[in-house]
């Protein structure tokens, strides 16, 4: 064809990881929770993203098979939600809140500082693969704006002057509370 069209006829050229057997088992562990297998999709996508760092084409295809739905069903769901990404992101994803409260408290200066320190723009990843930068509509911590979330860790009342310090801290994504065995408590019906 003489014009540019996105190719959906051929499989994507890029490589993406497969679901490991333990990961599949973890997903299957959720089957009892819901009356349909499809309902396990969103938990499964969280587990995949937790494991792979993103939800790639291959993972989408394989989870579709596992849940007995079509790959397009998975693509549909994945793309709807802003917290699933279909392409690799940095080891740490920095989400800068831009909701009204954070915005009025200087979220744009925090975001600008993040861009400066990391040397990347919104929705970009540092060349070393360490950080990705994103914006977020509301992190529901408006009393402590401006907020930054680094993976699961929330940083509140962020002063632009402290952004460099936060980003240079290796433990900036470590939670202060014990992390639950993410998604492991699936079969509790007998308890």
């Amino acid at each position: 064809m003489a014009w540019k069209a996105i190719d959906r006829v051929n499989a994507p050229a890029e490589e993406s990881p497969s679901l490991s057997e333990p990961l599949k088992e973890k997903i299957r562990g959720f089957f009892d929770r819901y009356p349909t297998k499809r309902a396990v999709l969103i938990p499964a996508l969280h587990m995949i993203q937790d494991d792979h760092g993103y939800v790639g084409w291959k993972a989408m295809e394989e989870v579709a098979e596992l849940l007995e739905i079509t790959p397009s069903d998975v693509f549909d769901t994945v793309s709807f939600y802003s917290h699933f990404w279909t392409h690799p992101k940095g080891e740490k994803v920095v989400m800068a809140c831009r909701s009204i409260s954070c915005d009025l408290l200087g979220a744009d200066r925090v975001l600008d500082e993040c861009k400066k320190v990391l040397g990347i723009g919104d929705h970009e990843t540092t060349p070393d693969g360490k950080y990705s930068l994103m914006t977020e509509e509301c992190l529901a911590a408006c009393d402590h704006g401006p907020c930054l979330m680094i993976n699961e860790k929330m940083h509140k009342c962020v002063d632009p002057a402290n952004v460099r310090k936060i980003l240079e801290d290796d433990a900036n994504d470590k939670l202060d509370i014990p992390r639950s065995n993410l998604y492991d408590g699936a079969n509790r019906t007998s308890a």
Binding site: H46, H83, C138, A140, M149, E152, M154, L175, S180, G185
Partner: peptide, 18 residues
Amino acid sequence: AEFTEQYHIMQKAIDEAY
């Protein structure tokens, strides 16, 4: 999804409650 710490807190509480 943005409730990350809260998720771990709730999960722990549910485990306790069970």
